[in-house]
């Protein structure tokens, strides 16, 4: 564990721009108030943080991977899991900008190598591996780095007899990696098979938004599917569907509550109750392993 910690710290210090920059920006008066995208209400930032970035209107704002890990684990304590490096820009892909430049810009913005971040620790006393997909890194898109991170985190859970919890968020596949991004669908599915064979639980928490190849692979293969309120969850994006059927989509279509009604998720859980719900499920599903 301590070895993991040391390694992950080294890895972070290489990548994360000194946190001071973000902090100072946050303290400027401009950023002290955040507008709720649903009600338009201006919310005082410290209040919003205390409410886990859920506005008074109940809107669950997107949060980054570090915030997610710290609100999920007890007292914000966790150890990062080392995630493997992958071949970068395997297709030397260029659209308006080279993919390499896009990657670099995303890394500077987010302070991490790619979308996934994984840690292990305790959720209300229950040991777990938690993998978070961060939408702020190139729309959470699933490429080779994300696929390998998924496999590494699942392997950690497997090797240490821990349940595997994944917070999904993605626009879909990383197009700049072409077919290699599509191949992450079977590859992540294989990683889950390893957990299944050992009887270890896999719990998915669907967050806003989860679409495309991510939904059509590991996001829909959980033993239990939880969703945050109001999250957009689907295979095809709403715009593509509207273009196909040439009709307006009904209100609430592809939102968490709709998926609950259609039988695709087990529960819609407000952010403040997620850790407790996860712990309750883990306690039961892991009981055979503890006996």
């Amino acid at each position: 564990m301590s070895k993991d910690k040391a390694r992950s710290d080294g890895w972070l210090s290489r990548l994360v721009r000194p946190g001071v920059k973000a902090e100072t920006k946050r303290d400027t008066p401009d950023n002290l108030w955040v507008k709720c995208p649903v009600s338009g209400e201006m919310v005082y930032r410290p209040d919003l943080e205390a409410a886990l970035w859920v506005t008074p209107a109940g809107h669950h704002m997107r949060i980054d991977a570090i915030k997610r890990l710290s609100v999920t684990f007890d007292d914000g304590n966790y150890t990062l899991i080392d995630l493997p490096d992958v071949a970068e820009d395997p297709l030397t892909f260029t659209d308006d900008k080279p993919y390499e430049a896009r990657l670099k810009a995303a890394r500077n913005k987010v302070g991490r190598k790619d979308t996934m971040l994984a840690g292990h620790g305790e959720i209300q006393g229950e040991r777990a591996v938690v993998l978070v997909q961060d939408f702020s890194f190139m729309g959470g898109s699933l490429g080779m780095a994300a696929g390998e991170a998924f496999i590494a985190a699942a392997t950690h859970a497997h090797d240490h007899n821990m349940p595997f919890v994944v917070f999904t968020a993605a626009g879909g596949a990383r197009m700049q990696e072409g077919i290699l991004s599509l191949m992450q669908m079977p590859r992540t599915t294989l990683a889950l098979q390893m957990l299944k064979d050992k009887g270890l639980p896999y719990i998915v928490v669907l967050t806003d938004p989860t679409t495309g190849g991510v939904t059509a692979s590991y996001a829909m293969l959980g033993d239990v599917h939880l969703a945050e309120p109001g999250a957009l969850i689907g295979f095809a994006g709403p715009r593509v569907i509207e273009q196909t059927i040439r009709e307006k989509l009904p209100p609430g279509f592809q939102r968490s509550e709709y998926l609950l009604e259609k039988g695709m998720v087990d529960r819609v859980v407000p952010r403040a109750e997620l850790s407790e719900t996860l712990a309750k499920i883990i306690r039961v599903l892991m009981s055979a392993h503890k006996a």
Binding site: M220, G234, I241, E247
Partner: peptide, 12 residues
Amino acid sequence: PGLGAEERGQAE
């Protein structure tokens, strides 16, 4: 990519 397909769990 249709409405019914989504409703009945295309991704799943």
